[in-house]
């Protein structure tokens, strides 16, 4: 599971959950895999992302490095910044672990890099 994906996942439709975001990450196994860098794509991706949530997620799995916690101005023209964002958004990959609902503590397992967001009928 990439951090771009984590940035979009919520547990909101569970019974009794009001926000369900962001999900906490408890990573057991994290790796990085090289993805082709496309600066134009990353520039268009950044506005879709909750930057604070991304930074916290990156930090919790030990890959924040020197990524700025505040989104800088004119990032479209800053290749160095875009490369850092690219790495955190697309290259960091959580292989095994759990996502945890911030309100109920319900755990969603991650196996083979795939988060399992399925709910039981009585949870919906």
């Amino acid at each position: 599971m990439k951090l771009i994906t984590h940035n979009m996942l919520t547990s909101k439709c569970m019974k009794g959950v009001t926000v369900g975001y962001p999900l906490k990450i408890q990573a057991v196994d994290v790796k990085t895999s090289e993805v082709d860098f496309n600066p134009e794509f990353i520039s268009r991706l950044i506005p879709k992302v909750d930057w604070n949530v991304l930074c916290e997620a990156a930090e919790s799995v030990g890959f924040l490095d020197d990524l700025p916690r505040e989104l800088i101005e004119n990032y479209e023209n800053d290749v160095d910044f875009l490369k850092k964002a690219h790495r955190v958004l697309l290259e960091v990959d959580i292989i095994n672990g759990e996502l945890v609902c911030p309100e109920t503590g319900r755990k969603f397992p991650i196996n083979n890099g795939i988060p399992n967001m399925l709910l039981n009928e009585d949870e919906v």
Binding site: M1, M8, T10, K12, M14, D36, L90, G113
Partner: peptide, 23 residues
């Protein structure tokens, strides 16, 4: 292919669209 990510979920549940709206 390293540009792929997979999520296990039920597309008919709303859980699914909350965070992904128009993304």
């Amino acid at each position: 292919f390293s540009s792929i990510d997979i999520v296990q979920c039920d597309i008919s549940q709303d859980l699914f669209t909350n965070g992904w709206f128009k993304k």
